[in-house]
Design a protein around this nucleic acid. Sequence first.
DNA 1: ATGGTTGCCTCGCAA
Length: 260
Amino acid sequence: MKIVTWNVNSIKARLPIVINWLRENAPDIVLLQEIKCENSAFPSEFFEDLGYNIALHGQKTYHGVAILSKLPIEDVVRGLPDFEDTQSRYIEALVGSMRVSSIYVPNGQEVGSDKFHYKLSFYKKLKAHMKKSLEAKEIAIWGGDYNVAPFLADGPNEEAFKGERILTSQKEREAFRELLWLGITDAIRVQYSEESLQGQHLFSWWDYRANSWAQNKGFRIDHLLLSPQAADRLESAGINSEVRALEKASDHAPVWIKLR
DNA sequence: ATGGTTGCCTCGCAA
């Protein structure tokens, strides 16, 4: 069972790249973020042709999340429960015996700004929802763009973690780690420890600006978080960073896991 | 370094 999360930064702009990647990698479940279109504008037929069922929580111009699955999709939840939000950032569904979520956490723009506080409140509600979900003892996978680089190995250098920068500030990293403290597993980090050679520079996002990709100045901000029942079945995990080098690439690469 | 680039029913905004 292969599951991937990918912030595509507009599904319409990314359609050929995404379709090709799905054809070559054939994941069973695809969690998309930043589709940047309303449900009615989503190019569903291209994905249906590849055998995917589709659940959408879209929005025009900004945000928008989706779940694609070769197995039937049931019990769809749109929007983070108990969180008033005009932005489409959360969708959850039952796929077979698995509960899967596609999450686009607010960027926060600047530490201390209104958007930053919105980001922290999103995290607070996400934590509450995850805590409740864990009680069901299901195989649960929360994948998405968390807009936080949790550990020092998840950025280009120590400098990137100094001061109060967005993606790496103390408050953001703590908000993310609080999810882990619930008993949740960060799939990439459990496969590749911070100390290991392979664990270095496992980035999922490179800014379009400042020649970040060419210099490999990226961050690991896209994560697949697993309930204990899912973590017990974790076989392998990885990031397809080579996709970032393609013409017209998203600024994010796909992050995947295989579960037994 | 407050720049840089990309996408959007765009001429500013969010990332």
